[in-house]
Lab assay of single mutants.
Amino acid sequence: ALNRGDKVRIKRTESYWYGDVGTVASVEKSGILYPVIVRFDRVNYNGFSGSASGVNTNNFAENELELVQAAA
């Protein structure tokens, strides 16, 4: 299972961040479909780089994520 702070690569092909590595911000335990919230260094097309207006978190299912580096 994934944990907060883990570095993960995104495998959801239609995602803006496909192939990117993000950090797990939190994992919901309530049984929702996309329980893993991942935070990225770059914002998506809703904002400009360096601006706070873009979105830099997204929810994924565990099977859409590949663990790159476990949290220390």
Rank of each mutant, 00 (worst) to 15 (best):
Gly50Asn: 11
Gly50Arg: 00
Ala61Thr: 05
Val38His: 00
Val36His: 01
Asn56Pro: 04
Lys7Trp: 07
Val36Asp: 00
Ala25Val: 15
Gly5Cys: 09
Asp20Leu: 08
Asp20Pro: 01
Asn44Phe: 15
Glu14Arg: 05
Ala1Asn: 11
Gly19His: 04
Gln69Gly: 07
Asn58Leu: 07
Asp41Gln: 08
Val24Phe: 03
Ile37Arg: 11
Ala52Trp: 08
Ala72Phe: 12
Glu28Met: 12
Val43Cys: 15
Ser30Gly: 11
Val27Glu: 01
Ala61His: 09
Val68Ala: 02
Ser51Thr: 11
Tyr45Arg: 10
Asn63Tyr: 14
Asn56Cys: 15
Asn63Val: 09
Tyr45His: 15
Gly54His: 08
Asp41Trp: 05
Pro35Tyr: 09
Glu28His: 10
Asn58Trp: 15
Arg9Ser: 06
Leu2Trp: 06
Asn44Lys: 12
Asn46Gly: 10
Asn63Phe: 13
Gly50Trp: 07
Gly5Asn: 04
Arg39Ser: 09
Ala25Gly: 03
Leu33Tyr: 05
Arg9Glu: 05
Phe60Leu: 02
Asn63Ala: 11
Val43Trp: 15
Gln69Ser: 10
Ile10Lys: 02
Ser53Gly: 11
Val68Thr: 04
Gln69Trp: 12
Asp41Phe: 07
Leu33Ser: 10
Arg39Tyr: 10
Ser26Arg: 13
Glu66His: 04
Ser51Gly: 12
Phe48Met: 14
Phe40Thr: 00
Thr23Glu: 13
Val8Tyr: 00
Val43Lys: 08
Asn56His: 07
Ala61Asn: 12
Gly22Phe: 02
Ile10Pro: 03
Val43Leu: 09
Arg4Trp: 04
Tyr16Pro: 07
Glu28Tyr: 08
Tyr18Arg: 01
Arg42Lys: 14
Ala1Tyr: 13
Gln69Ile: 08
Glu14Met: 07
Ile32Leu: 09
Asn59Ser: 13
Tyr34Trp: 08
Asp20Cys: 09
Gly5Ser: 01
Thr13Gly: 05
Glu66Ile: 09
Tyr34Gln: 07
Val55His: 11
Arg39Asn: 07
Lys7Ser: 06
Val38Ser: 00
Tyr18His: 07
Val55Cys: 14
Gly50Phe: 06
Asn63Trp: 14
Ile32Pro: 05
Glu66Met: 05
Val38Met: 00
Val36Ser: 00
Phe60Ser: 00
Ala1Pro: 12
Ala70Lys: 14
